[in-house]
Simulated assay, not measured.
Amino acid sequence: MPVTALVSAKSAGVTTSALALALASGRPTTLAECDPAGGTIRSGLLQNEVGAGYGLYHLAQAERVGPDALAQAFASHVWPLDGDGHRQLLPGLTDPAQAAALGRTWPSLAQIMRVLADRAGQNVFIDAGRLALDAGRLHSTLTPAPMLHQADLVLLVVRGTDQSLTLARYLVDPLRAELAEHGSGPDALGLLLIESGPYRAHQVAESLKLPVLAALPFDAESAAYLSQGGQQPRRWARSPLLQHARTAAQQLEAVAARRQVQREYAPQPASEQLAGVLDRLNRRRRGGPRG
Rank of each mutant, 00 (worst) to 15 (best):
Q47T: 13
G136V: 01
M113S: 09
G197C: 04
S227C: 06
R200K: 14
A97G: 09
V3S: 04
Q72I: 08
A117F: 01
R104D: 12
R114A: 06
Y54C: 11
A18E: 12
G66D: 10
G55M: 10
R169Y: 04
F74Q: 01
G197L: 02
D68V: 05
V50Y: 05
W79Y: 15
D82R: 04
G288M: 12
P144S: 10
Y54H: 13
Q268A: 15
A275V: 09
A24E: 02
S76V: 00
D68S: 06
Q273I: 01
Y170Q: 11
V158M: 12
G230L: 09
I194F: 00
R137G: 08
S108E: 13
G103H: 06
V277I: 12
Q231K: 12
A97M: 08
I194N: 06
T15I: 01
S11H: 13
A224T: 08
S271H: 03
A270N: 13
G39D: 03
N282A: 15
E195M: 06
H182T: 10
L59H: 11
P198F: 09
R238K: 13
I126N: 00
L175W: 03
L193D: 02
Q243G: 07
Q228A: 07
A256P: 03
T29I: 08
V65H: 12
L138C: 11
F125W: 13
G229N: 08
A245G: 08
S164T: 03
R137H: 12
D134P: 00
R159H: 11
Q250S: 12
A75M: 05
P146Y: 07
E195G: 02
L175G: 06
V78G: 07
A275E: 13
M113K: 01
Q232W: 02
V65C: 04
A75P: 01
A132Q: 15
G136S: 03
G55W: 05
L56K: 07
G13T: 02
G83L: 14
V157T: 12
F125D: 03
A188P: 08
Q243F: 02
E195V: 01
L216E: 01
P289V: 14
G83E: 15
R238T: 11
P107N: 09
R283M: 08
G121Q: 10
R258Y: 04
E195C: 05
A110D: 00
L89M: 11
H202T: 08
S227I: 04
L193N: 02
R176I: 05
S164W: 03
L175V: 06
G276I: 00
G38I: 11
P107G: 10
G183W: 02
L242Q: 10
V157D: 03
R137D: 13
Y265D: 07
R169A: 11
G38H: 08
D162L: 14
A37C: 01
Q98Y: 02
P267A: 13
E272Y: 08
Q232N: 03
L156G: 01
L148K: 03
A266E: 04
G121H: 10
T94W: 12
G38Q: 09
A168K: 07
L46C: 09
A32L: 15
K209V: 11
L171F: 15
L252S: 05
A75C: 02
P233N: 04
